[in-house]
Amino acid sequence: EEAIQNFKALLSDMVRSSDVSWSDTRRTLRKDHRWESGSLLEREEKEKLFNEHIEALTK
């Protein structure tokens, strides 16, 4: 649960536009030290959280 919250915070800070792809964003996020705290999450979970974040940005 904490890993999810940390990853959501990372997305909020780093992803402000809804027209970015997961693969491009992932490359950028990996450069942030907080990426490692999400290592407990599966890749699919990270992508799902990313997609939810993008959906929220479009509303």
Results as ranks from 00 to 15, higher is better:
residue 42 E to S: 15
residue 4 I to L: 05
residue 13 D to E: 12
residue 20 V to Q: 09
residue 8 K to R: 12
residue 29 L to V: 02
residue 54 I to C: 11
residue 53 H to C: 00
residue 23 S to H: 13
residue 49 L to Q: 03
residue 12 S to E: 14
residue 22 W to V: 05
residue 19 D to T: 09
residue 30 R to A: 14
residue 2 E to W: 03
residue 27 R to C: 11
residue 37 S to W: 11
residue 10 L to W: 04
residue 51 N to R: 10
residue 5 Q to S: 09
residue 26 R to C: 14
residue 43 R to H: 15
residue 35 W to P: 07
residue 9 A to Q: 11
residue 12 S to Y: 05
residue 2 E to G: 06
residue 25 T to S: 10
residue 43 R to W: 14
residue 58 T to G: 14
residue 3 A to G: 07
residue 26 R to T: 11
residue 39 S to L: 11
residue 17 S to G: 05
residue 19 D to F: 01
residue 48 K to V: 08
residue 40 L to M: 10
residue 6 N to L: 07
residue 59 K to W: 06
residue 18 S to A: 15
residue 40 L to R: 13
residue 43 R to V: 15
residue 3 A to D: 14
residue 16 R to F: 06
residue 26 R to P: 01
residue 12 S to I: 07
residue 44 E to H: 15
residue 38 G to P: 08
residue 57 L to M: 13
residue 54 I to N: 05
residue 9 A to Y: 05
residue 47 E to N: 03
residue 55 E to A: 12
residue 2 E to M: 04
residue 20 V to H: 04
residue 56 A to N: 13
residue 43 R to I: 15
residue 7 F to I: 03
residue 5 Q to D: 08
residue 51 N to C: 02
residue 51 N to W: 04
residue 35 W to G: 11
residue 24 D to I: 01
residue 58 T to N: 14
residue 38 G to H: 10
residue 5 Q to V: 07
residue 15 V to Q: 00
residue 6 N to G: 05
residue 1 E to A: 03
residue 27 R to S: 12
residue 17 S to C: 10
residue 56 A to L: 11
residue 55 E to W: 03
residue 14 M to H: 13
residue 35 W to L: 02
residue 32 D to S: 01
residue 56 A to G: 14
residue 41 L to Y: 03
residue 30 R to I: 07
residue 56 A to C: 11
residue 22 W to K: 07
residue 16 R to K: 14
residue 43 R to Q: 15
residue 30 R to H: 08
residue 24 D to A: 11
residue 25 T to H: 01
residue 11 L to Q: 05
residue 10 L to E: 04
residue 30 R to W: 05
residue 13 D to A: 05
residue 51 N to K: 08
residue 29 L to A: 02
residue 10 L to M: 12
residue 35 W to Y: 11
residue 16 R to L: 12
residue 17 S to R: 12
residue 8 K to F: 01
residue 15 V to T: 03
